[in-house]
């Protein structure tokens, strides 16, 4: 456990995440840090946050463990790097074509069914869930045109994390594991045919120079989660917990707003950079939904009633915030 919290004291806390400061997830943590500093200035413990962006302290793979063990006080959780029985219910986060709109995603995430389920499951990993942030969408980038699921058959696709890999296998593609630094060259030389990633990283890693085709379908709308180390959290006085909780709400809104705005611009920026980005017809979208259906069926089978509750919340959110 971190150093004991003393009354009227000041405590330096570490906030670690894996993406750059200017990314919507970075905005979450930088806003969180600023808000925590401001809101705990007069509480029984004054928290002094110190942020570690860009995976400086821990990367995607280590962050869930780092939070569990108290090696960081607060951190980013990319759920794709958590697997095991207690993570099963949370797999809904990466189901393809789950949400129709950003607002539907946010409404579902904020519904008691989903929020409580995630908080409960994360607590089993000694995480105190603070809130959601926007990673953005995941799209398909390839060197051959992809409009229908059948176009994916036999493509060698770079993948990472459990969910993207399962989706690729379901679609008939061959998932390939390689370091993110090798993707550019592997795309350029044809070692792989494509990759599944966010449009923002296509820009930041200059993948647009070596990819010909992309999709603009919001195949997945990924949220990341912010968690605090539960060992630390449980020792905080109530007034400080309240202040951190309020800070987290402000950060969540800032991150979602930026995530949506970034996402609306990014397809056009990729087109300007020379990538053939496909907007799919409703029929084509439907074909993708059907191709990915086995994943959803598998999720339902494995999660039973708890999963059904979450999916009902998702359906309600989609009904309340339909695509115009």
């Amino acid at each position: 456990a971190p150093a004991l919290v003393r009354a009227q004291s000041e405590q330096v806390i570490k906030i670690a995440y894996n993406l750059p400061e200017h990314h919507a997830t970075g905005t979450y943590f930088e806003t969180l840090a600023k808000e925590i500093a401001a809101r705990t200035a007069e509480t029984s413990v004054k928290l002094v946050p110190q942020t570690f962006p860009d995976g400086q302290l821990y990367n995607d793979t280590q962050l869930p463990d780092a939070i569990s063990t108290g090696a960081t006080h607060i951190g980013q959780v990319n759920l794709g790097f958590m697997a095991g029985r207690d993570a099963q219910l949370m797999r809904v986060w990466a189901m393809p074509f789950l949400y129709d709109t950003w607002e539907a995603e946010w409404a579902a995430e904020d519904s008691p069914a989903m929020r409580n389920a995630f908080a409960t499951q994360l607590a089993k990993y000694d995480h105190q869930m603070l809130g959601w942030m926007a990673y953005g969408t995941v799209e398909i980038y390839t060197n051959s045109p992809v409009r229908l699921p059948s176009d994916m058959q036999g493509l060698k696709m770079r993948s990472f994390g459990l969910d993207a890999t399962q989706l690729l296998s379901t679609l008939g593609a061959s998932p390939v594991t390689m370091s993110s630094q090798e993707v550019y060259q592997a795309m350029q030389r044809g070692t792989i045919d494509g990759c599944l990633t966010g449009p923002s990283s296509v820009l930041s890693r200059k993948l647009f120079e070596v990819t010909k085709y992309g999709t603009n379908v919001a195949m997945m709308r990924l949220p990341f989660v912010a968690s605090a180390s539960k060992m630390w959290w449980d020792m905080l006085p109530e007034d400080v917990k309240t202040a951190v909780g309020e800070a987290a709400m402000v950060a969540q809104k800032a991150s979602r707003d930026q995530g949506k705005a970034d996402s609306e611009r990014v397809a056009d920026r990729l087109r300007e950079a020379g990538v053939d980005v496909a907007d799919l017809t409703p029929e084509e979208r439907k074909a993708w939904g059907e191709a990915a259906a086995p994943l959803l069926a598998d999720y339902k089978a494995k999660t039973g009633e708890a999963g059904a509750d979450i999916l009902a919340a998702v359906a309600a959110a989609n009904a309340a915030h339909p695509a115009s």
Partner: peptide, 22 residues
């Protein structure tokens, strides 16, 4: 800098050290 409990950072870093396929 952070107290003995934070030495748990070491096994985490060890895991990370060899996680990149390169």
């Amino acid at each position: 800098a952070s107290g003995l409990p934070f030495l748990v950072q070491i096994p985490l870093t060890l895991q990370r050290a060899l996680a990149d396929p390169v």
